[in-house]
Design a binder for these strands. Structure first.
Lengths: 126, 126
DNA sequence: CTGTATCCGAGAGGATACTG
DNA sequence: CAGTATCCTCTCGGATACAG
């Protein structure tokens, strides 16, 4: 089920791409994906960069991102082990798209806030 | 807190725009926003279009979308009442941006799936 | 028809401790 | 250093019943 009579292009989204869509739009992944944007990062670097995400979630998400081919995981067999994560082309592409969204938010935020104020004002009288 | 040392442009996102971002990326809103894309829709029309979202969530989300100025709510004072929801310019703009994302998913989905298969294959041996 | 109120279960995600 | 395991809370979202 889920979205039957909706415009095409959406239907496409909510079946095969559903999984991917949810990955992208959940809280953790975006934040984490942003982290290695300027070059590969070690586990603890990502953790510090994101700050506010537990290690449990972090490793979980990193695994997911790997599995979807958005980042790569490189292990250097030494003691202590060094593991670094880097964006793939796919991941970069996604970030590019998300820039569209963050850009839109940046541009329109003021309008949205204005709308909120108007809405609240209306509520006040009525 | 939340994202301190991250690249600029992100910081912008995760403070004032945070609220808006979360609205956009939660499950209900997107689906619901898509519904009145081809013209105003009544409450039950939206409900039928989305199918899989409870009335509780639906009315809640519609209210939020209203408050953020993404849709308008028009009440026709009759018995029984007729209420219709329509996209605003702001809402249309957002949908336009989201098309970017759905488009990307559409184009790259195959690559993502391929990456998954590769990942799983590697896991098999190792 | 258009909602609001109430209840409830599943799952996301945080904190902490421990292992290779 | 790089995780995994465990526990636990808290919010999201579904189902249902009822009101204007």
């Amino acid at each position: 089920m889920l979205v039957g009579q909706n415009p095409a292009g959406l239907a496409m989204l909510f079946c095969p791409g559903r999984d991917l869509f949810e990955l992208i739009t959940s809280r953790g992944p975006l934040l984490i994906l942003w982290s290695p944007r300027d070059g590969p990062q070690r586990f603890y670097e990502v953790r510090n960069a994101v700050e506010g995400t537990s290690e449990r979630v972090l490793s979980e998400v990193l695994k997911k991102l790997c599995r979807h081919g958005l980042i790569t995981r490189h292990v250097e067999p030494s003691v202590p082990p060094k593991v670094s994560y880097a964006l793939t082309g796919l991941g970069e592409g996604l970030l590019g798209i998300m820039d569209g969204l963050t850009g839109w938010i940046g541009r329109e935020l003021e309008n949205v806030e204005a709308a909120k104020r108007r809405y609240n004002a209306q509520e006040g009288m009525a």
